[in-house]
Design a protein around this nucleic acid. Structure first.
Length: 493
RNA sequence: GGUCGGAUGGCCGAGUGGCUAGGCAGAGCUCUGCAAAAGCUCCUACAGCGGUUCGAAUCCGCUUCCGACCUCCA
């Protein structure tokens, strides 16, 4: 248990603030989940990884976290689609399947990728399509309160009416007057603009065009919910208002999260979440990795090494380690070289941790201060989840571990146990890193034991021609032999 | 144009006033029948120009360059 306070950066104040939930030990966390109309890519992995570490750390500290992460399966208007049709509907027509079939397929694929990355599932994973009544209800409330209006079957949020009563733009630093005056709208050609009272207004409900397949009944039209209302309605339903932490990618800051705040504040009179946390983007060649830019690499491509930019396949744990080696609020530049560096570093890291776990105490005194080292590890996480700092401090400690392993340094049983427990819980439970799994069957293990015995006998006869022949031919089969002092080890490469 | 964030050694990436982060690559060494792996050692960078300070990668100003958001996007 860590007695030190945890500081988390709050986008609302642009400062690190000491985290204290409203009703300890309960913590309510909402994270914007994926829109399931395509394969998850590396950029998607970042927020889920970031908040996975947060949830794991909070739980280690004894908090009871309710983690809600939605699945957006109702589709949203696609601006650059020719007919302005629903993203999911468009994909469905192309693939000749039901829209929900597409959503289901990519939801399953998303779950598989998350599991591979050892990202714990959220406690509640609500689907937008399953919460249409809640969204309709919230829209009706907003209309009743005078913050929304109907226009040609669609319903829009009235930003001017809202801004007259509440501060608008506080999260993103936008100035309400300028937005209302249409600043930055020069390049907009959004469909439906003429229906709005003001260009800054955003849709709560959209009337479906005849070609639009995904549609639900509402008091105003057959249509579908607007771009931001699902998160407001679902977070309110499962976490109440206000809840503790709302998370998501930086690109959602505006308009998505700003709109969520406006909707919820208009309804309930307060900002819906106390902490707003935003992870930075994954870049590739200095540019954001994103669907619309077409420069993304899917997680499955990374796991399989199946992309022109990749020289090899990467273990999901290496991807996880790679992402955690950068602080979540910094951009992270992707390249195959950077991943290869992470792969090698990860192996050394986990090997060192593995050596530590095998250590036995044979001393009564301590050769170094375990307590200050362990607290320095917690300090890193307490400082706005500084995972790269945590990793670096463990790396720095690796030589000490090796000195102990060689019998050149010692720790008492009590200190060693404390060290092992701390590293174990931080590396395995919080960072979520586990040794990469080697898939070997019992048959292979048996055959390899036999071969290794034969080779060992050859070595003892100083028949190096034979032992080298075995090693060379196994290497061609993808099995690597490493000779130690007394015995040899093998591994699939 | 507006809002926000960056520029750190060959590459990735921490660090908000003094104590050379760390990883990868590279060099040397140890171990070893050889190889591989591993371990040890070395490699002292902070875009530019001013300013504040005993002292600045870190604070302030200016300049240059880059990115995110302002339109679905993690």
């Amino acid at each position: 248990m860590n007695p030190q306070p945890l500081f988390l950066h709050n986008t609302l104040s642009r400062n690190k603030e000491r985290f204290e939930p409203q009703q300890p030990p309960l913590v309510g966390l909402y994270v914007c989940g994926p829109t399931v109309y395509g394969e998850a890519h590396l950029g998607h992995a970042r927020p889920y990884l970031t908040f996975d570490v947060l949830v794991r750390y909070l739980r280690l500290q004894g908090y009871r976290v309710r983690y809600v992460r939605n699945i957006t399966d109702v589709g949203h208007l696609e601006h650059d689609a020719d007919e302005g049709e629903d993203k999911i509907a468009r994909k469905a027509r192309l693939e000749q399947v039901e829209p929900m079939e597409v959503a289901e397929r990519y939801t399953r694929s998303f779950h598989a990728s998350m599991q591979a990355l050892n990202i714990l599932p959220p406690d509640i994973e609500p689907r937008a399509s399953g919460h249409i009544p809640e969204q309709l209800h919230m829209i009706e409330e907003l209309m009743k309160l005078g913050f929304a209006y109907e226009s040609a079957g669609s319903v829009y949020f009235d930003v001017a009416a809202y801004a007259a009563q509440y501060p608008y733009g506080q999260l993103s630093g936008r100035v309400a007057d300028e937005l209302l005056a249409g600043a930055g709208n020069e390049r907009r050609a959004l469909e439906g603009q003429s229906e709005k009272r003001n260009p800054a207004d955003f849709a709560l409900w959209k009337k479906a065009q005849p070609t639009h397949i995904m549609r639900w009944s509402s008091p105003w039209s057959e249509g579908f919910p607007g771009w931001h209302i699902e998160c407001s309605a679902m977070s309110r339903k499962y976490l109440g208002e206000p809840f503790d932490i709302h998370g998501g990618g930086m690109d959602l800051l505006f308009p998505h999260h700003e709109s969520e705040i406006a909707q919820s504040q208009a309804c309930c009179g307060q900002v819906p979440a106390r902490w707003w946390m935003h992870n930075n983007m994954v870049t590739i060649d200095g540019q954001k990795m994103g669907k619309s830019l077409g420069n993304f690499i899917t997680l499955n491509e990374l796991f399989a090494g199946n992309h022109p930019r990749l020289s090899q396949a990467f273990d999901p744990m290496v991807i996880r380690f790679f992402v955690l080696q950068a602080h979540y609020r910094s951009t992270l530049d992707f390249s195959s070289e950077a991943l290869q560096a992470a792969e090698k570093g990860y192996k050394r890291f986990m090997d060192g941790v593995g050596v530590l776990m095998q250590l036995k105490s044979d001393a009564s005194g301590d050769d170094f201060a375990v307590d200050s080292f362990v607290s320095s590890l917690y300090d890193a996480l307490n400082d706005d989840l500084n995972t790269p700092m945590l990793i670096a401090r463990i790396y720095e400690f690796l030589p000490q571990i090796h000195r102990m392993h060689e019998g050149k340094a010692h720790l008492s049983a009590k200190s060693l146990t404390r060290l092992q427990q701390a590293v174990q819980s931080l590396v395995t439970e919080v960072l979520g890193l586990t040794a990469t799994q080697q898939q070997t069957g019992t048959h292979l293990n048996g055959v390899m034991d036999l071969l290794m015995d034969i080779r060992q006998q050859a070595k003892e006869r100083r028949d190096f021609a034979s032992s080298d022949e075995i090693r060379k031919r196994l290497e061609l089969l993808g099995i690597q032999i490493k000779d130690g002092k007394d015995k040899s080890e093998w591994s699939l490469s």
